[in-house]
Design a protein around this nucleic acid. Structure first.
Lengths: 231, 231
DNA sequence: GAACTAATACTCGATTTCGAGTACTTGAGA
DNA sequence: TCTCAAGTACTCGAAATCGAGTATTAGTTC
């Protein structure tokens, strides 16, 4: 069994919301949106209702009333239980105190950089830079507007943190693109040669690694030291 | 239908691996591990086999032979197809070129900071700093060892990127903890008062927001300006 | 050569996750 | 007053995800 009975971050947000006052699921979703928390926690209706059901089953929340408003579908209002408060506290403490390993998509992409030619990679990274710059601008504009509305920073630290991450990514991607462009990246000579061989001779990358000396001579001594099972 | 027929990042790694040479699933997993790619892409057996099945169904890979080694279970060796190569190329281009919105767990936690007292938050953030420092050290050690093994940077950019992200997080968390400690965070006066009220009087946070003037006087003018549905 | 550990190569099915779809209502404009 | 878009409040089933479990074999040590 997973450490948490309901592990979806959305469940955490549900507990946090019901910690303020009882609500029905749809109300939770609109409240999260209006407070901008929907920006920091992935919200989707399918998950919302299943997560609410799971939380109820686990005893962290309970239905307190079902109201019918005119002819609309019934709304079930939920409240948090003592066990739910304990779970939320424990969860928040873990989220803040313990770094959790996360896998960014870019990391996966970078792991396969050599599959594209250096030129292609630079082109794509430049494209990414544009997207990231736009994101930074959006976040900064949002922060400015919140500042001018006098909403204290404490209510949007999560967005500030997000900005810090995006900026770090931007800085890294820019530096990497420049290094590739100027051949400043160790291994890029090998990289360029490989791509020329693959494109001109139609060889498979695996063949090149099987007999490196044949294709590259002695120019790249580290090549011969790669353990065979990593080729 | 999702944009990609098989959307799991592991499927991307499978395509990337089979792009080098045909392999059987378990071999893919050991190869990813030995190259350290398992650090950048979440690898788990259950997903691996289901993803391989899905890729085959989608026509991106195909079984080329089943070998039996002694009395061990049969191994099915897969090879990438032309459609698979196209998918991989398209996918890699997207991963590199287009920033994808990702939700870090810390972001979710930060969104609920006011649920804990400032002191508690600082304590937890300090704890996190320790964990992050350990992570940075680990990564730096790994990079040093790869450098000394003469393995060119191009083969571990993903780890370099990861380090950049962790360092950014570390910097941000340190700054935030300091700001809270020194009351430098706007809104922290309000925050401390709220917690005193909630703890001493046993009130619900929602009650405080309903009639801010009663509990806080005119000290926090922005409080009155919060739209009612965001309370 | 017996016993044990580590590695190999998967399987299974219970949860989780998702997002498109549905059905009603309200309000604004023509 | 009719229409039409936007908002409200969910439902549903297909697909993904996971990680513990299983069964065999190779290697190591006493």
């Amino acid at each position: 069994m997973a450490r948490r009975k309901v592990a979806n971050p959305l469940a955490f947000a549900v507990l946090g919301s019901l910690g303020e006052r009882p609500m029905h699921p749809y109300e939770i979703s609109t409240m999260l949106k209006s407070r901008g928390k929907g920006m920091s926690i992935k919200l989707n209706y399918g998950s919302l209702y299943s997560v609410v059901g799971a939380l109820e089953k686990a005893g962290f929340i309970e239905a307190v009333e079902t109201v019918r408003d005119g002819n609309r579908p019934e709304k079930t209002v939920y409240a948090i239980t003592a066990a739910g408060r304990a779970e939320f506290d424990d969860w928040l403490a873990e989220l803040l105190g313990k770094p959790e390993r996360e896998f960014s998509q870019l990391e996966a992409g970078l792991a396969y950089l050599p599959a594209f030619s250096p030129d292609r990679v630079v082109e794509l990274l430049d494209q990414r830079v544009k997207g990231l710059v736009a994101e930074v601008e959006q976040l900064e504009a949002a922060h400015e507007s919140m500042t001018s509305m006098k909403l204290p920073r404490i209510f949007w630290v999560e967005s500030e943190f997000r900005l810090a991450l995006v900026q770090a990514e931007l800085t890294y991607v820019r530096r990497l693109a420049r290094a590739i462009r100027t051949d400043g990246l160790e291994g890029s000579g090998f990289w360029r040669q490989t791509h020329q061989l693959v494109e001109k001779l139609g060889l498979q990358p695996a063949d090149l690694l099987k007999d490196p000396v044949k294709y590259f001579g002695e120019e790249f001594p580290w090549l011969q030291e790669i353990p065979p099972d990593a080729r």
